[in-house]
Design a protein around this nucleic acid. Structure first.
Length: 669
RNA sequence: GCGGGUGUAGCUCAAUGGUAGAGUUCCAGCCUUCCAAGCUGGCUAUGCGGGUUCAAUCCCCGCCACCCGCUCCA
């Protein structure tokens, strides 16, 4: 092709992002800062559009979801209740030998013979250095002196510095001496644990290997000691080498509330937006006049000190989330009220069937995703979970990520977090791998229960339908349902480490509450990463196609095929020529006509084709050209009409200026 | 965090232990009647900090950032 070597796709996308102003590295003039990114003019518009569409579809266009915009810094107890303080903060140890990293609490205790060394010297260099007097030898040989003059000089100078009365000078001397000697030896202690009875030789072998990694070419480990150890957690489970002391790994972004940095004022930037929703659940319920089932949505920044930010903006330390917490009745409550819980599989099977028959009549042209069952009172958590997965995929389709470009991944039982009943990840195939855009989790009543326990404030809701229905049930049925609810509560409390006696008392109380119409709602959580989605949209939109140049030769054209709904700029306005004031004035008139309704970009610089191409890279779906016909030079029937050029097909049509606003609005909505 | 690689203009790529060059983009002007045309002029770079040297973008060290692999990812 035109390019002699193929630049990897992701590189081209990153380059375009920077070139056109979608995404820049943060703090670039200072060398950048790892894990942080800025959105440029086009990126800011794109992101704003995406967030607005999410917000509109999740809250404004629904009866049963309301919004929340909570603070980023919250009471630190929130993160104790949510489990982030403990799970986000792990002591980690590194293995000196195999360099693997482990969680300190997952190291198994081992017994055996530990061989330890205080360091190693280089067999060859050391003997030479000893002769030269650097490492304590006494008989410098002229031959080696000539090779080692520099080191000898440095060493002697260091000794002089070390005898100074100034501590700063002594420090420099110590440094220098260390530098000089470090060529000949390594002072880092090392140890390895072997099963009792195994030959010391293999310990030496491992130690040598270790010191070789530390750039001692011919290491002789020094001062070997052996000792029987029992149940020690200081040695690597895989290779037996000594582990480093535990280092605290904390993924939470710490800060201080108030100007004084004392331990009582420690707080964290939120690592997810969801917890604020749980914490405000009761307040929102009261003021919004909603009833279960209903949801609370939030868009906002979150912060995690990721160990290793990677893949452009995909894993950043500061990122934005769009989260919904949708609160539902526990299945026992649904069953009490409706007499049954609808089977999720059946609901979707019924809705799929008509679609299958449609396939036999291709003329019907039905979309593959027309199935869209509406929520029913007898839905339990499985149906709601499936419902939200479907809603979310449909939304992705609506902004230009077709279902086929996404992957639904149902987490396996053993991958599920302890609080989750089911989690589905929606994945997108990025150039760097298939990665998660959104997770839709069925979280049971874990979060609200935690906040109830930690805050001491009741998180239960009263449901008069439940109370009335409960009263009508036969005793055997209430017993069965009560028992199921009780068991679930007991299981949760036990899992959280609540003492057995306390747990069983509490679970009994909770079950009694159920009979009075009171329960803790369960929750379905669709949680999407905005920045990941933006990246997916950019990757998906990026396209190189062939466009003819002036002479009709095909030429590679880079075009961002954004869905018009999300395109940063909706329409570009061009006067055909910029040195004709009439054209320019008319074009500016058109620009001003459209500006109140759409994002418009006016451009008069350069050849028209060039201006089209610039907009192709920005992903602008429509271009308007004002020419002499617009001015009426070719007759009155073409007066006040403009050329409307379509980005993807590059086709042009003639449109009346008066029709532009409704026509374009229709296309971008 | 570990290992490897990279770092020159907005982008793509040169060159050199002694004045950093091209194409393209961008800006201005002229010209131009619908897909990166032409002409003229212009802006813009050795990631940061040390060291060696008379002199460092180049050699050495440290840092930072990016890429790849491992690791990590509630």
């Amino acid at each position: 092709m035109a390019e002699p070597k193929e630049t990897p796709l992701m590189e081209k996308i990153v380059s375009l992002c920077k070139r056109r102003g979608f995404i820049f590295q943060s703090s670039e003039i200072y060398g950048g800062i790892n894990g942080f990114w800025d959105y440029g003019p086009l990126g800011a518009e794109l992101k704003r559009n995406v967030k607005e569409l999410w917000w509109r579809s999740m809250t404004q266009q629904r009866e049963d979801v309301v919004g929340l915009e909570a603070s980023i810094v919250m009471h630190p107890k929130i993160w104790e209740a949510s489990g982030h303080t403990s799970t986000f903060s792990d002591p980690m140890v590194d293995c000196l030998g195999c360099r693997k990293r482990f969680r300190a609490d997952q190291i198994e205790a081992r017994s055996g013979t530990a061989y330890s060394y205080v360091g190693a010297f280089d067999e060859k260099l050391w003997s030479q250095a000893a002769i030269a007097g650097i490492t304590g030898g006494t008989e410098p040989s002229a031959d080696f002196l000539s090779q080692l003059t520099d080191d000898v000089t440095r060493h002697n100078f260091a000794k002089q510095l070390l005898s100074s009365s100034e501590p700063e000078i002594r420090a420099i001397g110590k440094d220098l001496e260390q530098q000089t000697i470090s060529k000949y030896q390594c002072d880092i202690p090392f140890a390895v644990l072997l099963p009792s009875g195994k030959a010391a030789d293999s310990a030496r072998k491992i130690a040598k290997q270790y010191y070789r990694q530390r750039s001692v070419a011919n290491p002789v480990p020094r001062d070997e000691r052996s000792e029987e150890v029992k149940n020690s957690t200081h040695y690597c489970n895989e290779c037996g080498s000594l582990l480093t002391p535990p280092k605290q790994f904390n993924l939470m972004f710490k800060t201080y509330v108030g100007p004084v940095e004392d331990p009582e004022s420690v707080a964290y930037l939120r690592p997810e937006t969801a917890q604020a929703i749980f914490a405000q659940f009761k307040t929102v319920l009261e003021v919004s006049r909603q009833k279960i089932p209903f949801g609370i949505a939030q868009i906002g920044k979150a912060f995690r000190n990721e160990i290793n930010p990677r893949n452009f903006t995909f894993r950043s330390r500061e990122f934005e989330q769009m989260e919904l917490e949708f609160f539902i009745r526990p299945d026992e409550v649904v069953e009490t009220i409706c007499g049954k819980v609808a089977n999720a599989a059946d609901i979707w099977k019924e809705n799929i069937e008509p679609r299958t028959s449609n396939a036999e009549h291709p003329t019907s042209g039905s979309q593959p995703s027309t199935l869209n069952p509406q929520p029913q009172p007898d839905w339990g958590w499985e149906a709601w979970h499936k419902y939200w997965i479907e809603q979310r995929i449909r939304w992705y389709e609506s902004i230009g990520l077709p279902r086929a470009s996404l992957e639904e991944y149902w987490q396996k039982k053993d991958e599920l977090a302890h609080y989750a009943r089911a989690t589905v990840d929606i994945l997108y195939k990025f150039p760097f791998g298939t990665q998660e855009l959104e997770g839709i989790a069925a979280r049971g009543d874990f979060d609200l229960s935690q906040h109830q326990r930690f805050s001491g404030k009741p998180m239960g809701v009263f449901d008069d339908e439940l109370k009335a229905a409960w009263a009508r049930l036969e005793e055997a049925k209430t017993k069965e349902l009560g028992q199921r609810y009780h068991d679930a509560r007991l299981k949760y409390l036990a899992q959280m480490g609540v003492a057995a006696e306390e747990s069983s008392k509490q679970a009994r109380e909770d079950a009694d509450c159920l009979a009075r119409g009171n329960y803790i709602p369960h929750v379905i959580e669709p949680s999407a990463g905005v920045d990941r989605l933006i990246l997916a949209l950019i990757c998906h939109a990026y396209c190189e196609d062939q466009a003819p140049d002036e002479k009709g030769h095909p030429e590679t054209r880079v075009v961002m095929r954004f869905h018009p709904r999300i395109a940063p700029i909706k329409v570009a306005v061009f006067p055909l020529l910029k040195n004709k004031p009439d054209l320019v004035n008319k074009a500016k008139e058109v620009r001003d006509l459209l500006r109140p309704h759409l994002t418009v970009f006016y451009d008069e610089a350069g050849a028209l084709g060039r201006r089209y191409r610039r907009q192709d890279e920005a992903g602008t779906p429509f271009g308007l050209t004002i020419d002499f016909e617009t001015l009426g030079e070719k007759g009155p029937e073409l007066k006040d009409t403009v050329t409307l050029r379509d980005r993807d097909s590059m086709k042009q049509e003639r449109v009346k200026i008066g029709d532009l606003v409704p026509l374009l609005l229709e296309k971008v909505r």
